[in-house]
Amino acid sequence: MRTVFVAGPFFKLVDPETGAMRPQDRERFELLIGYFEDSGCEVHNAHRRERWGEAFLEPDDFTKLDHDEIAASDVLVAVPGPPASLGTHIELGWASALGKPIVLLLEKDEDYALMVYGLRHITRTAIVETIGGRFDRAAFEDALSAVCAP
Rank of each mutant, 00 (worst) to 15 (best):
R137C: 05
P80H: 00
L114R: 10
F36N: 05
E129M: 05
T123W: 01
V75C: 04
A126E: 07
H47C: 14
R134A: 13
D25F: 00
K100E: 12
D68Y: 06
G93M: 08
R22G: 04
L65G: 07
E27P: 02
P80T: 03
F140K: 04
S96F: 01
G133W: 01
A143F: 02
G133N: 00
E58V: 13
S96D: 10
F10M: 09
K108W: 10
I90F: 11
M1A: 14
C41H: 05
F29A: 04
D111Q: 12
L65H: 06
R2N: 15
F5V: 10
V79Y: 01
R120L: 05
V116I: 12
E69V: 04
V79P: 04
A97S: 15
G53H: 01
A143W: 01
P101I: 01
G93P: 12
R28W: 02
A138R: 11
E27L: 08
L144F: 03
V103M: 00
E30N: 03
G132F: 03
D136T: 08
F10L: 10
Y112T: 11
L105I: 04
L76P: 07
L86R: 13
V75E: 01
A71H: 09
A113T: 12
P83K: 09
L32Q: 07
P9Q: 04
H47A: 15
K64N: 14
P80L: 01
